[in-house]
């Protein structure tokens, strides 16, 4: 019981971090059709920028400044890069973001070096929030939940209650219709791209000290964010949210399960012995392949339902 409760909380924290990254990507992906490979690189930039900024003005101002810097970088990328590539098709756009990944990676290494940064949780948040069955729940994780909940609320209000939000919402499902109605679609694109990068930067700020800030962090986060976006479905922030939390939960829960296919077969009288490839595959416990489950789930859902969990149109 205690493991379950703790796993639920931790899964939620990780899921919300995923959502912060994935929500920006979903918006960009659904509107512009761009599979932004550099999204996780912006996440990394957010963490590094926050580290540098927080050394001068402290963590909380950095929480505001670093995401804004990331948003500006995103706007610059959209205006001077993506927009010029747009008419060359989606694969050109994808390759463009692919090139960005290499460049940002090397730039980060050239600016901050190759080693992990000493980017730590601020002292004011470095205490156990409450104790649950003898396990601490750190205040910083509570803070992460708070920030992501605020972000969720903010995004929701922006999309539902403002004019630009309405246009974005419309463009999510009917991009052509919106431009036909005479809206400045390029400007909407820039706004969305910058907004997505801002959210990725924010995720970087609070994720950089939750995990470690190092040149490899973009690579480790990249694929899973794609999985969340595709699993959740295009054009649906709600689907993205559910997918994030599900993926967060799966990754934390899989660790707890120590059973393998062989254990399932044993009651049926099937005993696996010997040292063959089949035995090797069947005796792998779920915990060992936990990190792979999201990919298995993505392939499965796309196979049966190509529009994802709550997608409004085919991907």
């Amino acid at each position: 019981m205690e493991t379950i409760l703790i796993s639920v909380l931790n899964g939620l924290v990780y899921g919300m971090l995923l959502f912060m990254l994935a929500s920006g990507l979903t918006l960009i992906f659904s509107m512009m059709g761009v599979l932004n490979f550099a999204h996780a690189s912006i996440y990394m930039l957010g963490a590094y920028l926050a580290f540098t900024v927080s050394r001068f003005v402290g963590f909380f101002p950095a929480l505001i400044i670093a995401p804004i810097l990331c948003g500006l970088i995103g706007a610059a990328i959209e205006i001077w890069g993506l927009r010029r590539v747009h008419h060359n098709g989606h694969i050109a756009e994808l390759l463009f973001t692919f090139g960005l990944v290499f460049i940002i990676q090397r730039l980060v290494q050239m600016t901050w070096g190759m080693l992990p940064m000493a980017y730590r949780v601020p002292p004011s948040l470095d205490f156990p929030l409450f104790v649950l069955y003898g396990a601490n729940f750190p205040a910083y994780r509570g803070f992460m939940l708070l920030v992501s909940a605020a972000m969720l609320l903010g995004t929701w209000l922006l999309l539902k209650k403002t004019r630009i939000g309405l246009i974005i919402q419309a463009a999510l499902t009917h991009p052509h219709m919106v431009s036909s109605l005479g809206h400045n679609v390029p400007r909407v694109f820039t706004t969305v791209f910058a907004g997505g990068c801002l959210l990725a930067g924010l995720a970087g700020v609070i994720g950089g000290n939750y995990q470690t800030t190092e040149p490899g962090m973009a690579e480790s986060m990249g694929p899973i964010v794609f999985v969340v976006v595709v699993f959740g479905g295009l054009g649906s922030l709600a689907g993205c949210f559910i997918a994030s939390v599900v993926m967060g939960m799966i990754q934390t829960f899989a660790v707890v399960i120590d059973y393998s296919v062989a254990d399932l077969l044993r009651p049926m009288g099937v005993m696996l012995t010997g040292d063959t490839l089949l035995t090797e595959v069947l005796t792998v416990p779920v915990a060992r392949i936990g990190a792979l489950l999201p990919f298995v789930m993505m392939v499965t859902i796309l196979f049966f339902r190509p529009r994802g969990l709550m997608g409004t149109r085919d991907t």
Binding site: G81, R84, V85, N88, A92, E93, L95, F96, F98, G99, L100, V101, F102, I103, Q105, R106, L107, M110
Partner: peptide, 15 residues
């Protein structure tokens, strides 16, 4: 720094 050159080349090519 060859990765930078590769990256810049891709970007130049797609543009």
């Amino acid at each position: 720094s060859w990765l930078v050159y590769v990256g810049v080349m891709f970007i130049a090519m797609v543009i």
